[in-house]
Nucleic acid binder design. Structure first.
Lengths: 337, 337
DNA sequence: CTGTTAGCGCCTTCAA
DNA sequence: TTGAAGGCGCTAACAG
């Protein structure tokens, strides 16, 4: 059995309030008793029971992160940033991985409770008014990362300028001389209408329209966020009579699927088809994939920092920081053959 | 403020012991009162405060996983298995990501405490007698995943037969006719002498010796577990007067570094050099990398299951389950040019 | 400066 | 079958 504060108090011959005070660095303890207590603490290898502490303080000392498909490379990087920032604080992190709509609902209901967490980080997940209600009612501090939704004006968030990112990608293709540009994205509707995909799509459209090209609906296809779905879509695009000379994929994972299918079809990259991805995940560099880099790790770090601030001062004005994107040109894009 | 058990009791006109009983499905409550209480619970949207519950029960309801470099693909997969198995239980998961020796020590000290966790999962981390002492003294249930150390005979663990895996990899190369085979591994000593690397190395040696080849020390090099270090090592190997015709890398990540350097050197794979990795991470398939597959997700799932059992019955005999490996032949291995 | 006491919210006896 | 009381380990407010 671990020692308790009472054991320490008894052994040190002081009241347990005093022990509590040295534990919490209260200034109102004489150096002599502080030292005495500290010695006993060391001797007993005592460490306060965090659970009891939490109950007494009325705080859970835990932060939850709700993240879809946390094993995707981009999500992992965000999570990495989060764990970096959170270690060193007194907070525990619990992560809710969402892979189905049911889990999403369950997680929201479970975690929008003061009894469970002190703050919540929501990553890359679409958010409805009903969800918002849940959190507003519970009054739990909330920070969004990579959720860019007009609905969210009054919330704290770290967003990526995906419209600009999408525009940059397409502009790059345009600059190279492409006019027939396909776009492969995640599903834009249920179950997870990732707002990022939509924003990138808007960037795609904007760039095209600015160049006087009217986006052809045939060239915009979506599927599950996976290599395999991207492959299927790519194959369809390649079969089009007037097939695109370049493809912009909403993520590197999907871009890799594109590369695969194109090569299997016996076409050369970038001579026969240009491909550009999004995220700049680690392997992109190895593959020579041209892509749009976003600050994944930083987004996690900043999210935690912001959440901590909000938790400290729940009434502060909502803040929205936009992270930049950067075009990384490698070897999968070139002028059309 | 969330409702408490007292609010429910008062509103339902019962003692709060009764509410507690219906909460914990005690059979000794009449259906009528049970229903009445349940109605109030629903009405108030009451849910018991887990912290108070934990303090009262003397259990933390949390499991910790200590994992080095959890952003590496293989680690992520293990973690994924863990989160799968743990969701659906009443346990919270806290993950301690270890990237430096200091963090390792801190995490061990912090988590080998009953006050903090009910059980601990240690993944892919070397373990010393001192560490063991810490946990034995605290009496915290412990399960190792992917830690294969003779020292650990008395502990519960899920291991991979890395010796066999290493042997399979090298045997495959031998079968193709290679005799001059390089091995690139993680650092075998401090700060993290991953036992897996060593086991694979033993497999490498055994296979060679069985084939009557005495392993040349020059051909075994190690560096950090990274693409970049693997590249440096590969470059050195390629400069050797009698350079290897095949390289076995202790992980796919490192194998990818090998591929890169070889291609940069203008050599062809597999004609000029065969490469085989380990893990079969997701991208391996895209790259056509021959590799040794291990059951990453399963290892996490089984680890949790085992830990849960141990927590239920701490005195049960230690169990060690060995997971198999499988050779996955793709396009980076061929007979020597 | 320090000891004592009253909770934090829940579970679990012990009586009734 | 149920209510009341004690305690889990800690913090904070109140006396002294």
């Amino acid at each position: 059995m671990p020692a308790t504060i009472r054991d320490v108090a008894k052994k040190a011959g002081v009241g347990l309030g005093t022990v509590s005070r040295v534990l919490n660095q209260s200034p109102q303890v004489s150096d002599r008793t502080r030292q005495r207590v500290q010695d006993v603490i060391d001797e007993l290898d005592y460490s306060p029971n965090p659970i009891a502490r939490r109950l007494s303080l009325g705080k859970t000392h835990t932060i939850a992160v709700i993240i879809p498909f946390f094993t995707r490379p981009a999500a992992v990087e965000r999570l990495r940033g989060i764990t970096y920032s959170i270690s060193g604080t007194e907070y525990d992190l619990i992560v809710a991985n969402i892979e189905t709509p049911e889990r999403r609902i369950a997680a929201f209901r479970e975690l929008a409770r003061r009894e469970r967490v002190d703050g919540v980080l929501i990553i890359s997940l679409p958010f409805s008014e009903k969800d918002a209600e849940l959190f507003i009612k519970s009054g739990i501090p909330l920070v969004f990362i990579d959720v860019n939704d007009p609905l969210l004006h009054d919330f704290n968030r770290i967003v990526v300028d995906d419209i600009e990112g999408g525009r940059k990608a397409v502009q790059h293709l345009l600059d190279l001389g492409h006019t027939n540009i396909g776009y492969i994205s995640d599903v834009l509707e249920d179950p997870f209408p990732f707002s990022a995909s939509r924003a990138r799509f808007n960037g795609y459209r904007q760039a095209l329209e600015a160049a006087g090209i009217s986006p052809c609906p045939e060239l915009h296809r979506h599927g599950e966020h996976s290599r395999s779905d991207a492959k299927i879509i790519t194959a369809e695009m390649l079969r089009m009579p007037d097939r695109p000379t370049a493809i912009f994929a909403a993520s590197d994972t999907q871009a890799i699927g594109v590369l695969e299918t194109v090569r299997e079809a016996g076409l050369r990259i970038p001579e026969d088809l240009s491909v550009i991805g999004y995220d700049d995940v680690e392997i992109a560099d190895h593959l020579g994939l041209t892509t749009v880099r976003q600050l994944l790790v930083e987004s996690g770090e900043k999210g935690v920092r912001l959440l901590l601030e909000v938790m400290q001062d729940p009434l502060r004005e909502a803040e929205c920081e936009t992270l930049p994107t950067e075009l990384i040109i490698r070897n999968t894009t070139a002028p059309p053959g």
